[in-house]
Amino acid sequence: MSEVIWGMVTSHVPSIGAAMDHGKTQDPYWKPLFDGYQPAREWMAEHRPDVAIVIYNDHANGVDLDVVPAFAIGTADRYPVADEGWGPRPVPEVVGDPDLSQHLIEHLIDDGFDMTLFQELDVDHGLTVPLSIYCPDPGEAWPCRVVPLLVNVIQYPQPTAARCYALGRAIGRALASYQPDVKVAIFGTGGMSHQLAGARAGFVNPKFDAMFLEAIQTDPERLAALSREELIRQAGSEGIELIMWLVMRGAMNDEIRRIHETYHVPASNTAAALALFDNRGD
């Protein structure tokens, strides 16, 4: 039986990665955000998983709009780091865990989730920035294998928040029956409130963000009941990617323990947060 040891939710703004790649994390603009990450990073460095399941979305880098899957899982041995237009980020190639991917697919399909498989996939900042937040100095290789799990958050109708939460529950069930025993971390990425286009561009909603950051631990059912429309209204058109946090939450135990949390505005045009949860309750 495999086990989720911890879960992290975090924004995945590309400029957070660029700040690390260009040594700007101590600049006045970025320092508060990275200082906020520090306690979580220290705890995670002492609790290394064997594999991370990273819930994220692609941003016009690895997947074309020809094909828009609601939920997709990578099944590859390796995931090249995407060239998003200014060369790939200077971070290690992402090493997959095809056996775990295959196990998840078989269980999720049998559990009534209509997963798409990506057998080849370039991963963009949506995946690599959270990895850098977890592990800022990976050296030659990331310290864990990775299973990418993609959610359509860009094109309406996105999967509902409730469906994302249900997918997380199913992932939890699938992991419980996985042999060999591996330690799994699960990343819910994206958010918090932000909107990139329209007259409301630059929108930030700290009250909603605070509610979401609290309820993701204590009342995920409340978040799972939010409609698409309500999420867009409260969190902005791009803030709807918060539904990806619910996949993480669903894969964890009912009782989880908050290790650390941080919230900062702005990271680029976004309210950025990180929260880290030990899956072993109180």
């Binding site: 990139l196 007259a199 409301r200 630059g202 929108f203 930030v204 505005v265 702005p266 045009n269």
Partner: peptide, 25 residues
């Protein structure tokens, strides 16, 4: 781009974000 969409200069848009984002729209 945010400035273009929201009808302000880039500088004003950046300032609004630095001030905590546009919380009133």
């Amino acid at each position: 781009l945010g400035g273009v969409f929201s009808g302000m200069s880039e500088q004003d848009f950046r300032a609004a974000l630095m001030a905590g984002g546009r919380t009133d729209v």
